[in-house]
Amino acid sequence: MDFTFLIDKTILVAIIFAISLGIAAYSTYFERKFAGFFQDRIGPDRAGPFGILQPIADGVKLVMKEEIIPAGANPFLFIAGPSLSMLTACMTTAVLPWGSYLEIGGRKIPLQVADVNIGILYVFGVVSLGVYGLMIGGWASNNKFSLLGAIRAASQNISYEIAMGLSIIALVMMSGTLSIGTIVEQQQNSYWYVVLQPLGFLIFLICSFAETNRTPFDLPECEAELVGGYHTEYSSMKLGFYLFAEYTNMFVSSAVMSALYFGGYSVPFISALHLDQNLVAIIGTLAFFGKILFFIFFFMWVRWTIPRFRYDQLMKLGWQILIPLSIINIVLTGIFILVFDK
């Protein structure tokens, strides 16, 4: 390890951090714009041309608002809840590969913050820590709606985490590694894993909707029954952090899906063009962000297409359909590898 390594990594962390927050902020704008489009309205158009400054206006407004901590609440946990949510949402991007590598002055700079060989486990670990943010915040509010929202969120997230873990196991059986960087490299010279693992991808997709608390699984904050769910009592930037964490999680799960199942930064047939390595890396990174943005759009599209589940349906889908289905997927994958891949 030398000093340049640290500087490289710090710059990379800063850039990725800024990009992920920027995309999360602008997905709130595009969510409202698309909502307008789907419902034949205009959507936000007051702040700046086409309302393009809306996320900045929202952010400034949230920071400037009065901070209310209810008298019955536990102040330390009340502040810790949204902070933990935001922190875990920002941590997952560390192990994702954003591109192959750049060559600057004869040095290879990989466009990945940390290529650890337990990448997938790290993602799971950090994502499951996120549930503490909702649980702590909802409980600390000392409000009945918040408590119900929080225990709903906790029980929904842990239920879908099992099916998500099982669907990834089938992928790991094919790749033979837990490093996300290596999994993306494998897809460059072969099929994308979505072709080999269609059922696994479908289960993973459904589970990531549940993990990010998005419609049709947004029961923790379903406004018709629970006011605002776990963030009923929150105001100012603490509320902002919960909403921001949701959009950051959406970005992260889109990135994980594109990396694991849709080849990440790999572009089909690009090696046939014999381009300069730096150019290839930049095209790859742009392709990766294209895939991510498509999935974010998909999240929004589903929100305005599918109505919300009832809670018993949600638990039934998670435990009694997705878990058996993902075990069947593991067995099928095992047979497939043993028969065709020997």
């Binding site: 990594k9 962390v13 922190l87 941590m91 913050v113």
Partner: peptide
Amino acid sequence: LPILIQFFVA
């Protein structure tokens, strides 16, 4: 180590 850097930034 880079994960630690990311943790401090976040």
